[in-house]
């Protein structure tokens, strides 16, 4: 039996294989790397659990906002979603064999951030990568326990092959999926 490539490498290859863009970063450089993936202009919505990332992005000339209804914001969350160009979310777990990331229901609006805007940026911690779906599923269940709503396993961008089996990306979900893997220090 040949040596298996390290789990991180296998995850990156599998995720790229299904059409995701993958970057790796140190924890310190995360805001920098995420900022570099975003379009030059337009509103970026960030999941409430990683609200500090929204602040860091704001200092880098990104129009970023936490995805919560808030009296401080000058527009409603609904309107914000309507014009958002990207959604940034944390993930519960990732799967090396299929290049999958899981977004949980615990942080409010994470599911919408990964569904409505044309770009989804998913932050994965290296330690959260599992070999197989069978190993990852219990983690999804455990980490979303007690929260109602949708946990979603995401494998590449939204796609279809409904017209003559021709593969097209970006049907109703994001056209582009970026995965940023935060490496252990």
């Amino acid at each position: 039996m040949t040596a298996r490539p390290p789990i991180l490498q296998r995850f990156i290859e599998a995720a790229r294989g299904v059409g995701a863009c993958v970057e790796t970063t140190s924890p310190a450089a995360l805001p920098e790397v995420v900022a570099g993936l975003l379009p030059a202009r337009g509103l970026v919505l960030v999941a409430p659990e990683i609200a500090d990332l929204a602040d860091s992005l704001s200092t880098r000339d990104v129009e970023a906002r936490v995805a919560l209804e808030s009296s401080q914001a000058h527009e409603s969350l609904s309107r914000a979603f309507r014009r958002a160009v990207a959604g940034v979310t944390p993930t519960l777990v990732a799967v090396a064999s299929s290049g999958t990331v899981a977004v949980g229901p615990s942080g409010r609006n994470g599911g919408l951030l990964a569904a409505l805007p044309p770009q989804h940026v998913a932050i994965v911690h290296e330690r959260d990568i599992r070999d197989s779906l069978a190993e990852a599923l219990p983690v999804v269940v455990e980490r979303s326990a007690g929260s109602e709503g949708e946990a979603v396993l995401i494998t590449g961008p939204s796609r279809t092959a409904d017209i003559e089996m021709m593969s097209v990306l970006g049907v109703h979900g994001p056209l582009r999926l970026d995965i940023v893997v935060v490496l252990e220090d």
């Binding site: 109602e148 709503g149 946990a151 979603v152």
Partner: peptide
């Protein structure tokens, strides 16, 4: 079905959505 290892999305929905009910007017 489609020869994929996994489809783009597999949703596990338990109860009603935890997301805010957006109003798009």
């Amino acid at each position: 079905g489609t020869g994929q290892l996994l489809t783009s999305y597999v949703s596990l929905i338990t109860g009603t959505p935890s997301t805010d009910l957006l109003d798009f007017g």
